[in-house]
Nucleic acid binder design. Structure first.
Length: 266
DNA sequence: AATGGGACCTGCGCGC
DNA sequence: TGCGCGCAGGTCCCAT
């Protein structure tokens, strides 16, 4: 669910609400989401530390703790943070110095919480591609040269570029009028620049709207993000294209549901 | 290097 | 109404 705009939204809220709060207790209701280290060491390390800063790397959230360790959280499909929480349906709850709860919820239990010494050593971070906002159009262009793979799965490849998932890949390609089936190699210079500009514009707009609440994503406060109403193709199978009225198509590409306008996107 | 499949999980909506 | 099936925004791992 959560892609760069959603994770960035949560990061900003966590910064506003939680910096300099001490974690006084940790309750683990389901240890499946604790990937590293053991449940007991995890609790022991986090408990008693103060949250000093919040970092985002792609879709990964990182809490910098006062003891020098880092709590990293990947929300995967259905992870959520809720603050202040009530502990209900929470997989892990953090009690803070103001006596409020920060709840980590995760319906499908696919999320990952870790405590590490150095987050740069996590394989996911090590191999993570550049942040979109750190790129320029010409860098992006050169990244695409000689890539034979299809453009949509490539945009979703976190090693290629950080933060773009299935939803924003679809939206960005629609806005750039490029078919998800095209090979990266086949894009003209103009198309590459255009695609880059649409990536930046779309992600910024989505952050301004505080993300897209489809099914599971919510802001820290529990409120939905409003970018959904700007979606042009995602989850719109059979609906008319806003530009040409052609029915939006859904195909399966690299195992993922892929929405596009067969007429506008060439 | 690229592609395809399955695995990890739970719960929802659809068609029969 | 009840049940089985396919599907879900992410990532990793294996095989070809």
């Amino acid at each position: 669910m959560p892609e760069l705009p959603e994770v960035e939204t949560i990061k900003r809220e966590l910064m506003q609400q939680l910096v300099d709060k001490k974690i006084t207790a940790v309750v683990v209701n389901n240890a499946k989401v604790i990937k590293q280290p053991s449940r007991s060491v995890f609790i022991k390390t986090v408990k008693g530390s103060t949250i000093k800063r919040i970092i985002r790397k792609g879709k990964l959230l990182i809490f910098g703790l006062s003891n020098g360790k880092f709590l990293t959280v990947h929300l995967r499909m259905t992870g959520q943070f809720v603050y202040p929480g009530d502990g209900i349906k929470s997989r892990v709850s953090f009690r803070l110095s103001n006596n409020r709860l920060l709840d980590y919820k995760d319906q499908r239990l696919l999320g990952e919480l870790r405590v590490v010494k150095n987050f740069n050593n996590i394989p996911f971070v090590k191999e993570l591609g550049p942040e979109p906002f750190d790129l320029t159009a010409s860098k992006f262009e050169s990244m695409l040269t000689n890539r034979k793979t299809k453009i949509k799965p490539l945009l979703m490849d976190q090693k290629f570029i950080a933060g773009i998932g299935n939803l924003y890949a679809a939206e960005v390609l629609f806005r750039a009028r490029i078919s998800p089936l095209r090979s990266a190699l086949s894009l003209s210079k103009k198309e590459k620049r255009n695609l880059f500009n649409e990536i930046i514009k779309t992600l910024k707009e989505a952050i301004r709207c505080r993300g897209s609440s489809m099914d599971q994503y919510i802001q820290l406060s529990g409120k939905p993000g409003s970018y959904v109403k700007h979606h042009k193709v995602y989850d719109k199978k059979g609906k008319p294209c806003i530009v040409c009225n052609t029915a939006i198509k859904r195909i399966s590409l690299a195992g993922r549901g892929t929405y596009f306008c067969p007429k506008c996107q060439k």
